[in-house]
Design a protein around this nucleic acid. Structure first.
Lengths: 241, 241
DNA sequence: CGGCTGCTTGATCGCTCTCAAATGGGGTGG
DNA sequence: CCACCCCATTTGAGAGCGATCAAGCAGCCG
């Protein structure tokens, strides 16, 4: 079992979207919020649904994925506690362009469009914060776009693992364990390749002692080894950094 | 020569970032603006420079591109009159993550970070509009990311041409002419491939009567033919739409 | 008119996808 | 508690898309 205990929960005051609000403001924000819970593999919303609400994760992990007209899936991102998803209502979109699924049992706050407009008008700081968050999202996806356009599969998978470890890695004695289930298929959809290729790559890394993996479970034994794959440097060069 | 006459110029009131401001507001916005002009192939700013200002295009066409550490280039987007670029100051970024180059002679307004903060505080509507613009940008790049991850080169090039034509196509007798110079290399950097592959694809299309092309010049003779390549439909199926 | 820059085209290589089949871990139901 | 089945994973073989390498060509500007 991946987690026996309950995932840590964040409080509204530590959510970046509401940074800078005073206690009273946070109180009002909370008043307008709806609480939502989803078990593992349940969805918060589906691609194509009317974009009714913005979500902030209170606890857990949410996968945002898109389905192409041809039926291929890609993973847009994994969001964790304190992060937002379903941000369509922030700007004028009508439908969700993606599906949001709980990867482990997750809780979130949700604000519908009306509440959101009201809150942003009353606390412009929220709009500013949202701008910042969208900006970072944009930078992130552009950087991944660039990698997809210019780099080989192996390096993209290495980067994906390093990012996932940074986001949700748990230090164990054997190494850094990814804190939520990630299948080969997930990694493939995250990096624009096939599960077969990912499987081969992970097998090779396992043989080289870089990581150990099982069913939807990955432990990075040698992070430096992974990073050297990102950079085309030998491990000893990394050490000198 | 591609254009003998001057490119059309937009007024501040038709810029989406300032939608909803009254005359006085627009006047004030204009007061804080700096005017910038660039000849063809000159840059507005370079990747890595301190992100001093936000730009809005008054006339012309601007290419936003990124250079990888390995020296490969990708084109993030082409922006036209009324659109914004260099939007880093809107959120908290320190450096420009990309380079902005005038593809044809271009004019822009620029606002430095201080002016921008001042204006957004005084006219929160600007922040809301910015949110909307960033949201659309995000949707656009995600869709391109998805295409890059799941589609073949030929289709990606077809999509790129259709988009460019929609953005800046000029109806001529022979077909739709792209209104600014686009090289094979540019198309390659826009679609994540090489200029060789683009060249082969365009040659094939020219033979099939879909387009005609020359040095940095493309005329789409049969738009339906192109669109059928996007959809994996035969041209007659497109006709029935 | 010359040179530079962008374009074309051939040949080859190899990364990655595709197709196929077998394996095994783990959860579930009896 | 055990057996079964599902689904994630592994691994092999082969094909092919598209990159890479290598010349040669042709507009266009100065």
């Amino acid at each position: 079992m991946v987690q026996g205990r309950r995932e840590p929960t964040v409080s509204l005051s530590s959510v970046r979207l509401f940074l800078g609000l005073d206690t009273q403001g946070l109180q009002e924000v909370l008043t307008w919020a709806r609480r939502v819970e989803r078990e593992r593999n349940q969805s918060f919303f589906l691609q194509g649904e009317e974009a009714g609400a913005l979500f902030v994760i209170r606890a857990g992990r949410v996968k945002v994925s898109q389905l192409t007209p041809e039926g291929q899936q890609i993973v847009v991102r994994y969001a964790g506690a304190g992060e937002i998803f379903g941000c369509v209502p922030l700007y004028g979109g009508r439908e969700y362009p993606a599906t949001a699924t709980a990867v482990i049992r997750s809780e979130a706050w949700a604000w519908n469009r009306r509440s959101l407009d009201h809150l942003m008008e009353r606390y412009p700081r929220i709009a500013i914060n949202a701008l910042e968050l969208l900006g970072e999202e944009l930078a992130q996806i552009r950087s991944r776009y660039q990698e997809l356009a210019t780099e080989r599969v192996e390096r993209r998978v290495a980067r994906a693992l390093v990012r996932l470890a940074a986001q949700a890695g748990k230090q164990m004695e054997e190494g850094v364990l990814l804190g939520f289930p990630v299948s080969r298929q997930d990694l493939a959809e995250l990096t624009g390749t096939t599960l077969h290729t990912v499987s081969r790559i992970l097998s090779a890394w396992e043989q080289r002692g870089i990581l150990r993996s099982g069913r939807q479970r990955i432990v990075i034994v040698n992070p430096r080894g992974l990073m050297s794959l990102e950079e085309d440097l030998e491990p000893d060069q990394i050490d000198r950094l």
